[in-house]
């Protein structure tokens, strides 16, 4: 199988959809621990299209409100920033998330579902695992963690059986290693390149790069990276992976340095992911008629 050179990867990144100005600013803003909801409101107000989408969502059947919400301030405080980030990303780079991952034998839409489940699970890990980081930031990081798969999937082509053979024969320690052996890059390295092109905040770029090896992340961002690491594993355990690579990664059990989880808390997180996912998927999809 032909490996991808670093220059080729840069070309692939260049030809990918780019973030809209408001999505980019929204990610910058919400990654800053000092922001408040009014900052989000003011930003959304500068984008008429996004404002319309938020109002449409809050008044959609999924929320079942009796009285229509017409003010964007109220809509955003009702929904919370994770819904706003989901809509903004879906609008400009929905094509990346909806892509059929041929190289992983996954259907169109599987990546988005996996990302949503990871996002909800990472948020719940922060809340129920008694962490001191922003639950909404963990959600956003969870949404973005696997963008690299959309980039390299076409280049992996029909290599899924080969990747699995590499793992079962112990020539590769996990699916990341198999990806690198097959095409010269794994999905976290590819995603990191896209993160740079998208000028994502450093902490989100590190989540993308190290979500399978959280101990390698900068110390300041490590709790966030561990939260997404667990969220990703929880999504796969719940049956929402992205095809051939599902469950074929290593759990870093040193998460216990940052996160307190009992088997019962984990079970409770899995239950919440199931119920929240249905709600969120329905509502975000209901406004997403032009999502690619």
């Amino acid at each position: 199988m032909k490996t991808i050179s670093h220059d080729e990867l840069k070309k692939i990144v260049k030809s990918s959809p780019m973030l809209s100005v408001s999505a980019s600013r929204l990610l910058q803003l919400t990654s800053d621990p000092d922001h408040d909801l009014m900052d989000v409101v003011n930003l959304v107000k500068t984008d008429a299209n996004l404002t319309a989408r938020v109002l449409k969502l809050v008044n959609s059947a999924a929320f079942g409100l009796i009285n229509e919400i017409t003010s964007i301030d109220r809509a955003i405080s009702y929904l919370g920033e994770r819904f706003i980030v989901s809509i903004a990303l879906g609008d400009c780079v929905g094509k990346v998330f909806e892509k059929k991952l041929v190289g992983y034998e996954a259907a169109a839409g599987d990546l988005w579902k996996h990302d949503l489940r990871t996002a909800i699970a990472a948020r719940e890990v922060v809340v129920q695992g008694e962490m001191e980081i922003s639950p909404d930031l963990a959600f956003t990081a969870g949404l973005l963690h696997d963008i690299g798969k959309a980039l390299i999937s076409d280049y992996l082509k029909d290599s899924a059986p080969e990747a699995i053979e590499l793992i079962t024969s112990h020539d590769s320690v996990d699916y990341l290693d198999a990806e690198e052996k097959l095409i010269g890059f794994d999905h976290t390295q590819a995603g990191f390149e896209l993160a740079k092109a998208w000028q994502l905040p450093e902490k989100l770029a590190e989540v993308i790069r190290y979500h399978h090896s959280p101990a390698e992340a900068s110390e300041a961002f490590r709790p966030l990276v561990y939260a997404v690491h667990l969220g990703d594993n929880i999504a796969m355990m719940g049956g929402f992976g992205t095809g051939s690579d599902s469950m074929r990664y290593r759990l870093d059990a040193n998460y216990t340095d940052y996160i307190t989880l009992t088997p019962n808390t984990l079970a409770s997180i899995m239950l919440t992911v199931d119920s929240e996912f249905d709600k969120l998927e329905q509502s975000v999809a209901s406004t997403g008629e032009d999502k690619g």
Binding site: M237, Y249, L266
Partner: peptide, 16 residues
């Protein structure tokens, strides 16, 4: 009842 690789006891939901 699958488990992720290198799982610890807490994450062995498949086994439980």
């Amino acid at each position: 009842g699958a488990n992720v690789m290198d799982t610890n006891d807490t994450f062995q939901i498949g086994k439980r």
